[in-house]
C-alpha cells in the first residue's frame, strides 16, 4: 500500500492558542486510519486543519499534490469528504436536497442518480424520509444522512469526526458495519476520529495516539491491544 494522504509538521491555532504543534501521520490508499486521544488532544482540529477550516501550516500532500494552501472548497473538490462533528447537515433542506448537495461539484447526472440509489440501499431509512426536512430526523438518521451525503461526492478520502457520538449502540453498530462494507468493497480511504476506541480499532488498519497536539504513538491496532499501558488508557481493560 502507498500513502494517499501524508501530513508532516501540521500546526494549527485558534486565535492565540496553538492546538496542534507538529503532527505527522499518513493515511494509506484504501486503508482505515484512526486518531485516538483524550478530549482536547487536537483530533477534531486535525480534521479541520486538513480541510482548511482553521488556520494551519505544515505539509499536507494528497495523492502527490500539496493541498495546504487550498481553501475548504478546493480541498473538497479534490475528493475529500468531511463528516464534521455535529454532522453539518442542512437542517432546513430535505433529505433529497442534502444528498444532491453532496454531489454538487459533480457533473455526471446519471452517476449521481445511481449513487443516490446506492445510498438508499446502505441506509433504507433515508429513502423513507427523502422528502422530509433533515432537521426533523433523529440523531442516528442525521448521522446516516451525513455519511450518505459524504459518499455522494464519490470521495477518495473520508474524514469522519466522532461518527458514534450521541448515538444508540444499535445505530453505532449499524453505521460501523457500513464503514466496513465501504472499506472492503470500494477504494475509499478513511480517517476516523473516535472516542469509542475499541470499536474504531476493530475497523482500522493503523492507529495514531494524539496527546496535547502531538502524535505520541503510531502503530497497528494490535500494538495497542498488546501494550498493557496503552490498553488500559485507551481501551479501559
Amino acid at each position: 500500500m502507498t500513502a494517499l494522504l501524508s501530513v508532516k509538521g501540521l500546526t494549527a491555532s485558534y486565535g492565540d492558542g496553538q492546538v496542534l504543534s507538529g503532527v505527522d501521520f499518513e493515511v494509506q490508499r484504501g486503508g482505515v486510519t484512526v486518531l485516538l486521544g483524550a478530549n482536547g488532544a487536537g483530533k477534531t482540529t486535525t480534521l479541520r486543519a486538513l480541510c482548511g477550516m482553521v488556520r494551519r501550516s505544515g505539509d499536507i500532500v494528497l495523492d502527490g499534490a500539496p493541498i495546504q494552501n487550498l481553501s475548504t472548497e478546493g480541498v473538497v473538490r479534490l475528493g475529500v469528504a468531511h463528516v464534521p462533528d455535529g454532522r453539518g447537515t442542512f437542517a432546513q433542506l430535505t433529505v433529497d436536497e442534502n444528498l444532491q448537495l453532496g454531489s454538487i461539484t459533480r457533473r455526471d447526472r446519471r452517476g449521481i442518480g445511481e449513487d443516490v440509489e446506492r445510498c438508499f440501499t446502505y441506509f433504507p431509512v433515508l429513502k423513507e424520509r427523502r422528502g422530509q426536512q433533515a432537521g426533523t430526523l433523529s440523531g442516528g438518521e442525521q448521522q446516516m444522512l451525513a455519511v450518505a451525503r459524504a459518499l455522494m461526492l464519490r470521495p477518495k478520502l473520508m474524514l469522519l469526526d466522532e461518527p458514534s457520538f450521541g448515538l444508540a449502540p444499535m445505530i453505532v453498530k449499524q453505521i460501523f458495519a457500513i464503514f466496513r462494507t465501504l472499506s472492503e468493497s470500494t477504494s475509499v480511504s478513511m480517517l476516523i476520529v473516535e472516542q469509542n476506541a475499541a470499536l474504531a480499532l476493530e475497523l482500522a488498519d493503523h492507529a495514531y495516539l494524539l496527546e496535547t497536539g502531538r502524535v505520541v504513538f503510531s502503530g497497528r491496532p494490535d500494538d495497542i491491544r498488546n501494550d498493557p499501558t496503552l490498553r488500559r488508557s485507551y481501551l479501559g481493560y
Binding site: 481553501s71 472548497e73 453539518g88 442542512f90 436536497e97 461526492l153
Partner: peptide, 24 residues
C-alpha cells in the same frame, strides 16, 4: 436548479456548504 440549491445551502449553512465544495 442545482445552482439555486447551492445558493440556498450557502445561505442556510455556509460552513457545511464549503464542506460539500460550494464556493460560498
Amino acid at each position: 436548479t442545482r445552482l439555486g440549491l447551492a445558493m440556498r445551502a450557502a445561505a442556510a449553512n455556509p460552513e457545511s456548504a464549503r464542506l460539500v465544495g460550494i464556493r460560498v
